[in-house]
Design a protein around this nucleic acid. Sequence first.
DNA 1: ATTACTACTCACCGAGTAA
DNA 2: TTTACTCGGTGAGTAGTAA
Lengths: 211, 211
Amino acid sequence: MGAYHRTIKVSTQYLAERIGSSQQTASRHLIELDQLNWIKRLITNEGCLIALTDSGKAQLKNLYSKLKIVVEAAHPLSVTLEGIVFSGLGEGAYYVRQDGYRKQFIEKLGFDPYPGTLNIRLTTDYDIAASKELENYPAIEIEEFKDESRTFGHVRCYPALINNKARGALIAAFRTHYDSSVLEIISPHFLRSQLKIKDGQKVRLEIFTMP
Amino acid sequence: MGAYHRTIKVSTQYLAERIGSSQQTASRHLIELDQLNWIKRLITNEGCLIALTDSGKAQLKNLYSKLKIVVEAAHPLSVTLEGIVFSGLGEGAYYVRQDGYRKQFIEKLGFDPYPGTLNIRLTTDYDIAASKELENYPAIEIEEFKDESRTFGHVRCYPALINNKARGALIAAFRTHYDSSVLEIISPHFLRSQLKIKDGQKVRLEIFTMP
DNA sequence: ATTACTACTCACCGAGTAA
DNA sequence: TTTACTCGGTGAGTAGTAA
């Protein structure tokens, strides 16, 4: 009703009609919004003078921004997967330690990876399908490089949260030691000790796509 | 959680943590959203597969659009005023009948005005101040014109809703027969009979600014 | 593990009414 | 006319628990 931009005058009776409630409820809503400091309220004998406070505007902007991200994004912000931890052959560690990769991880992911990977086996059709969808979404691109002896290929990775706590990234992938039901995770931390996870335990991965 | 863009798998327990409620409440919310046809829900023994329906997405888009208008607009969409009806000297009718104005009203306001104006006297400081604010907001511009004898000046007007029912427009103004506490309203209808208003009665005007 | 029913509590809503 | 209090009924949230 314009209270975002200017002070408006409105009776609780009229507000009630507009929001489809009783006059008493409209009045109580205004009292509560005032107590939250989301509106400034001046009671006159012909209605209330109402204006949103900066804090109140911020609440609306906040909701608006969150909706904007969801509604206007072309793809999901994140994909959540679950899988079972298992021990690999330690090959991941070999790749992670390569300086050509390491420098790019530090620069593009913002952390120096622990020299090893956490292997996750996806067990449900849903998780396997969801991890395949990730290929369609923009990733952080790690470029190929050469050292004296060989070429190390291009790698895509996604920032990730492991068990809703530890930062890391999904590496997709140091091709193709495992089938598509296997994921490799790097992290600044030694995840097995930091999160107290052992082989056979289930972990939850929240994988973030790039905007 | 991505359900706007893809089918996600989520347990009611985990959803409850995310929204800060109990598992039972999360479950009931999903049931209700399903009944509203805002989500599609498939229950598996390891959680629910959830995706928004087109109808569900439309709900979010609708809220988003309304917030967008409020948050991103540079000025209010409308200003609501109240005042007292009174009889003028009938000069408004003279101007409204001029073909140079009439043609522009039809073209720019979308209606052929009843040959007369409804005069409103603003009685409170709030209403007078609010009507002055209108000058700052974009209006429909009616251009000046000449006939054989004289020049008729440029006029700004705003679409309006009278007593939340009748269409019309605020004319600001066929200068300056009255002071700033007086408004003139035109409408396709003879408002005094259509809305059964008489001199001395209070009317509510919702004045719409241009985007 | 899951989901979701039943039963219970509590908070919200609104009628009546005071100021 | 206003706003907003008290108070009683109803609906929303949750614990316990079945499936």
